[in-house]
Amino acid sequence: MNENERIHKIIEELRSLPEPDYNKYFDMNKQNNIHENLMKVSRKYEAKQRSGSFMKRASTAVLGLAAFMLFAIVLMTINSQRSDEQIGYTFEDFFHEKMAEMPEQENNYAYTLIHTEMNAVQDGDAIAVYKEDRNEDGEVFFIAYFEKQGKRWVWKQSRGSKIDSPVNWTSMNQAPFIYFGLIRDHSIVEVYAGDTQAKIITVADGNRFWYAISPKQDVEVMLVKDDGSQEILDQFDPESLEN
């Protein structure tokens, strides 16, 4: 017998191996029992899948909603900032707008905005120093205090001082107590309102303007000269000008 014949014989022997006696060892009852178990497992699995699918959809929806809300909040914040600043609408724009809105009898003078300081006392406030050329009074320097209420700037108070006033300083009558004045003496290097050192800015013709924000009213104002000497200054109150 050659190899092919032997292989063929082996295959025949293998194919003639009997099948199990299903009626005795794997009858219909056993099959049905297994089937019943399988259906329980299958239904449970399907329910779990549905639940998982629902949870997946629900979590997707929640995540989507959260993402949308986050996007909306960001958008609203941006819009809020935009409406607040009105796309490039600055504090200085507001200032000039308010100056233009002044009643004609109060604002028939030319003015120059000299200096601004944002967040001077607290976040969302501003100080502006400006000069008006009043015909009869000559040049008058003003300091104004602004606060932001919501999205809008509000002009809270302002006060001015003539450049040729005989005395040196004045202050706001209500908080924040801003003390200010002009410096015509070049030897003055520092000014203090109480314990607060003033900011000094150059305004015109070598003159300087100082202001200091103090938590207290009626503090002493002291200047320090370049030789180290100190001097208490008198207040310029009766002649101060309000805007």
Binding site: E19, P20, Y22, F26, Q31, I34, H35, L38, M39, S42, R43, Y45, E46
Partner: peptide, 15 residues
């Protein structure tokens, strides 16, 4: 879907 397929396949191929 799963149950019906598994049921069908079980009786078709269990032996």
């Amino acid at each position: 879907m799963i149950s019906s397929k598994i049921s069908q396949w079980f009786y078709q191929y269990n032996k």
